[in-house]
């Protein structure tokens, strides 16, 4: 399998829309009180050496006499604030704020890599876990320490309280990116891991380097 990668075109594509809109929705029901944020304001995501500092306070959601702060989870600029909901009771999932998040270098790289790596996708909607031996390896030395080949028992599929193994199918290579999160449902067809065939690692590294030099991060 040879990939002809037009990194430049991919980059141009992304440059045309260099941000993504993050909709901050009410995680649960409650009465909304917005913090003093306005359209155009800069917000930050989680920071600190240990991720211990929360992002900018966006709003407060009060439910059962319990005020719960709602923080921005990514750096960006406030697009829309649904002020009309101030002081109102909202249902779970109601959009409150839209943040325009400019892609960072790492995000652009991840974005492009998704287009060039071999993606092994979820055969069904379920929760996925690495099998314990691989999980240990990933946690200890990162996903790139794992080499996969067809027929390797890679995942545990957990659905409706039952678990079954899932074998990897696809080219042999190392796991370059992991797209699923622990304890979260993955939709059918969504990628689980991105695999880089052994003979293409240089190519991939080249892509990464190109992005690093070409991409300028915006505030």
């Amino acid at each position: 399998m040879l990939l002809v990668i037009d990194v430049k075109a991919l980059l141009e594509n992304i440059k045309a829309a260099p941000y993504e809109e993050i909709v901050v929705a009410a995680p649960h029901t409650g009465t909304v009180t917005f913090a003093g944020i306005e359209t155009g304001a800069h917000v930050t995501g989680i920071t600190g050496a240990f991720g211990e500092k929360p992002g900018t306070l966006l709003a407060k959601l009060t439910r059962e006499n319990n005020d719960k702060p709602l923080f921005a989870n990514a750096k960006g600029v406030v697009g829309v604030v649904h002020r009309e909901l101030e002081g109102r009771f909202v249902e779970a999932g109601t959009p409150l704020v839209v943040i325009r998040h400019y892609l960072s270098k790492d995000e652009v790289i991840a974005n492009i890599l998704q287009k060039v790596l071999y993606l092994f996708c979820a055969p069904e909607r379920a929760k996925y876990y690495f099998i314990p031996s691989i999980d240990k390896k990933v946690k200890a030395s990162g996903p790139r320490s794992v080499t996969v080949k067809p027929g390797l028992e890679l995942f545990i599929v957990s659905r409706m309280k039952r678990e079954k193994p899932l074998l990897y199918e696809g080219p042999e290579g190392i796991i370059y990116a992991v797209y699923f999160q622990h304890d979260q449902n993955v939709d059918q067809g969504a990628p689980l891991v991105g695999v880089c065939p052994a003979d293409q690692t240089d190519l991939i590294q080249d892509v990464v380097n190109r992005v690093r030099t070409d991409w300028e991060e915006k505030e």
Binding site: R63, E64, N65, N66, K68, D183
Partner: peptide
């Protein structure tokens, strides 16, 4: 007090608010 309390572990462990 009649109120709910959020556990500091909610983010990591998904703890529900407790009464």
């Amino acid at each position: 007090e009649d109120r709910a309390v959020t556990c500091p572990g909610a983010k990591t462990y998904g703890c529900p608010d407790l009464w």
